[in-house]
Design a protein around this nucleic acid. Structure first.
Lengths: 233, 233
DNA sequence: TCCTGTGAATTCGTTCACAGCC
DNA sequence: GGCTGTGAACGAATTCACAGGA
């Protein structure tokens, strides 16, 4: 097999793919690393290095063929096939995820919704009916579910995760704010909404602190130099 | 000011914080870097290095005081104050985010919901009423909104982003699958649901490929060695 | 003895800069 | 002349390993 693709590159391929699909839909058939870099919000050296891990699909002096590159990126990401996804936890977030159009558009078929709450079992949501979590094994087998999404409260997440793994699911996307353990051979990714806001808070606060220092400095200058100091940078 | 904290460390502080709060609620008052590392799913050297950026708050031979560490991490992340958040786009995802309890619990007050769709304006959601996006300036000023969440479709995202920035919002969390431009001095973070699934797809596919190679290899061994070869690893 | 705090070593990721091909 | 593909240089993040304080 070809040399392993760095994880950082894998994480950017979906972004490139989206840009390429946009371009293709707008009728663009050729793209340079510079243009793709602009669209994706990275620099062109990164684009070239990332794409070079897939193979030499560009033409020197010309650029990349958009359709062909889409094909190659999709192949590399395993998007030639559709994947069946099960969502566990049909609260607010589970609902939103179940209704999210973007999944189906990109080849991720929501094949099952499950919940531990008997009150939710049987609820209709689009074409799907909510199943009880105890049916997980059966559903995973019947629908060939490869990816599980955990959208439960944090305390339930690890048990749900274990049951998904036991049922044969080998990729898990966790929205519960908890750190989950999975055995080797299972991929786990996490989306943590509060964490994102807390990271923003950190930067927001630092800006506020810097502003404060500036203001004080400005006031000192004012006091030293008398009224109307020139506006600094 | 103290030496800059690496971005990778900032991204982990919220995780540590959650673990510490959990521990505190369970009555644990002291923690070693090993225990915290276990809880957070990282290794202990990382924990120690990360925490050392905040200062020397541990005790050699003993560990860290949970409450004190919580205080320090919260302070560093700017969580001593509450932040007002505006959500733009009240579709499925916007709804789910507006109802998400985790935000309020961690000091992020949803102060406003906005949408461009006149049909949604006036809709009640908990204590809030959906405002029209044209009221953004007023709302940001009245509520002192510091953080904006974009939960619109991709085509609307950049314009919404520009309007948030123009209104004085300096931190933005983007859920729309689009790359946004912001001026320097504005923090932007992105959560891309499809991207996450596509990354899982990559690994899922690779596993399938490896399995296939193994199966073929096993079948070849079988053919060479006759029936019942010993199960390899 | 136990566990933190941190330089040093290492690994991983990004960017530079240019040879090579169109 | 233009743009890719890629070694080499650089920088960031992780991990090692141990000195030093409780």
């Amino acid at each position: 097999m070809r040399d392993r693709i760095p994880e950082a590159t894998v994480a950017r391929l979906p972004v490139y793919l989206r840009c390429l699909v946009d371009m293709s839909e707008r009728g663009t058939h050729r793209v340079s690393s510079d243009q793709l870099a602009d669209a994706a919000g990275v620099n062109s050296a990164k684009v070239r290095k990332d794409l070079s891990y897939l193979g030499s699909y560009g033409t020197r002096g010309v650029g990349y063929d958009v359709e062909y590159l889409i094909y190659q990126v999709r192949r590399e990401l395993g998007l030639e096939q559709d994947w069946a996804v099960a969502i566990v936890g049909v609260g607010n977030l589970g609902h939103a995820l179940a209704n999210y159009r973007g999944f189906a558009e990109r080849g991720f078929r929501i094949a099952a919704l499950l919940d531990a709450d008997g009150g939710k079992v049987g609820e209709e949501l689009g074409e799907l009916t909510v199943d009880h979590i105890d049916d997980l094994d059966r559903v995973v087998k019947e629908e060939q579910v490869a990816i599980g999404i955990i959208a439960t409260p944090a305390p339930a997440a690890q048990e749900v995760c274990d049951r998904l793994v036991a049922a044969g699911v080998t990729s898990i996307l966790n929205f519960a704010p908890a750190h989950l353990q999975v055995p080797a051979g299972v991929s786990l990714r996490k989306v943590d909404l509060s964490t994102e806001l807390q990271i923003l808070s950190f930067h927001e606060q630092r800006r506020a602190a810097v502003d404060l220092v500036r203001q004080v400095a400005a006031r000192n200058r004012e006091a030293d130099a008398g009224p109307r100091p020139p506006a600094g940078d």
